[in-house]
């Protein structure tokens, strides 16, 4: 158990450092790379928790597909280097205010122990084992079929929206 704890501590150090590096890097490509490192670390966390399927999906989807597209866009736009001054002056105080509200809310809920007894309908424990693929598929496609399908429709709508926005109409401008 102690070895797990050591691994966890080291990993969380890496994850937090990567997240901070992502935030404070002045170069968008380095930010993206820090974020990739963060995603991979989170995937290792999932492995540590005995959920290899989610770990692999995390790497494939987030590190492998989404961040590659981010990098692609950053490179195409040539937007690596941020200008030294802030483009939006009102953004910083607003961000501080909003995150302060979030922090207060989170601390309040944490210390008041509010609603911790109301358990969410948890899937069976067998999902969280190494032999979990079949179990997980059964849970996903039986118990959570409707949310699953709704999610896919959400993604489809986003895709259609992107295509509509970028499509040039015939005879229109540009």
């Amino acid at each position: 158990m102690t070895s797990d704890l050591i691994v966890f501590l080291v990993l969380s150090l890496v994850a937090i450092s990567a997240a901070l590096g992502m935030l404070f890097s002045r170069n968008a490509v380095y930010s993206a790379l820090f974020l990739v490192l963060n995603f991979v670390t989170v995937a290792v966390f999932y492995l540590l928790l005995g959920a290899p399927f989610i770990a692999m999906t995390q790497v494939t989807v987030y590190a492998g597909a989404i961040m590659v597209l981010f990098l692609f866009v950053i490179m195409l736009l040539g937007a690596e280097n941020l200008p030294p001054s802030d483009a939006l002056p009102w953004q910083k105080p607003l961000a501080v205010l909003l995150s302060a509200i979030l922090a207060v809310e989170a601390i309040y809920l944490l210390f008041m122990n509010a609603r911790t007894n109301m358990a969410i309908a948890a899937p069976e424990a067998s999902v969280n084992t190494m032999e979990n693929l079949r179990e997980m598929a059964m849970t996903l496609f039986n118990q959570f079929l409707l949310p699953f399908e709704v999610t896919s429709i959400l993604l489809l709508v986003a895709m259609v929206g992107a295509i509509v926005l970028t499509k040039q109409e015939k005879g229109g401008r540009s």
Partner: peptide, 25 residues
């Protein structure tokens, strides 16, 4: 002997693009 071997292949294959993209950049 990985339970999710095929997914492992998939995730590593999707990581492999980074080297080439970053070399170009």
């Amino acid at each position: 002997n990985l339970n999710v071997g095929v997914l492992y292949l998939m995730s590593i294959a999707s990581i492999a693009v980074y080297g080439i993209v970053l070399a170009g950049w």
